[in-house]
């Protein structure tokens, strides 16, 4: 199945909003760290419901662009706002339809690992970002976060499972400086009392605590030279 087919189906079933609500727990902290200024152009890769560029536009940027390979996702994202400061378009990570040095900062939440060739996606990002521009790459699906590994079995798209060091290395290979790597805890997801376990995906409460509060979301920040 293609990204388009898979995520068009998610979007028509309304999964874009549910994802956005869950991802917001950590995404808001990631977005808060971005050093955006009023005049900046910011790109969101795999924008889904498009919440990230709307949040940045509310904070104050020149323009936010959300790109997604699923036309239905983009259709939904567009329907959630009337703001002139954001725009959504259909496109692929590896074939970014943006001119070189045209973007100040880029963000991506729970989307990067769907790229058919993540190295190519990083090269494209390095191309479109201005010197000094950042790429804030946030993923829950990564090697150390073992509780997310099962996601692959539920989806037909091949997902990239890198560990922390592999993210840093791939960023550097694509020409990025690595400015930061961190795990951002999800402190909001409700974790039931011990007696309720096992529950889906977790043998014990400790496991669920580790998945959300410890492993949370892996953030890698690259800076274009």
């Amino acid at each position: 199945m293609s990204v388009r087919e898979e995520f068009d189906e998610w979007a028509t079933r309304g999964k874009d909003r549910g994802m956005a609500d869950r991802h917001w727990h950590t995404a808001k902290h990631v977005l808060a760290r971005m050093p955006v200024e009023d005049g900046d152009v910011v790109l969101d890769l795999g924008t889904g419901s498009g919440y990230a560029v709307r949040a940045l536009a509310d904070r104050g940027i020149e323009r936010g662009y959300g790109i997604d390979g699923s036309p239905e996702m983009v259709h939904n994202a567009r329907s959630y706002t009337e703001s002139d400061d954001v725009a959504y378009l259909v496109g692929d990570f590896e074939y970014l339809p943006f001119e070189a040095d045209s973007v100040d900062h880029a963000f991506s939440m729970e989307a990067f690992y769907y790229a058919a060739d993540p190295h190519a996606a990083l090269s494209e990002l390095a191309r479109v970002l201005q010197p000094g521009g950042t790429f804030y790459c946030a993923v829950d699906y990564y090697e150390e976060n073992v509780y997310t590994h099962e996601w692959q079995s539920g989806i037909d798209i091949e997902m990239t499972l890198w560990d922390r060091a592999e993210y840093r290395q791939a960023f550097r290979e694509a020409g990025f400086y690595v400015a930061e790597q961190d795990t951002v805890p999800d402190r909001e997801v409700e974790i039931p009392p011990p007696e309720d376990f096992p529950i889906e995906g977790f043998e014990s409460r400790e496991e669920m605590v580790e998945r959300y509060r410890t492993f949370g979301t892996l953030l890698t920040v690259g800076v274009a030279p």
Binding site: V3, R4, G69, P71, H75, L89, V90, Y95
Partner: peptide, 19 residues
């Protein structure tokens, strides 16, 4: 450009991308 949205997928990924 359909329904106000530009579709800049490479042509082979696009197929009939309208809803």
């Amino acid at each position: 450009i359909e329904d106000g949205i530009p579709n800049l997928l490479p042509p082979d990924m696009r197929e009939d991308a309208s809803a």
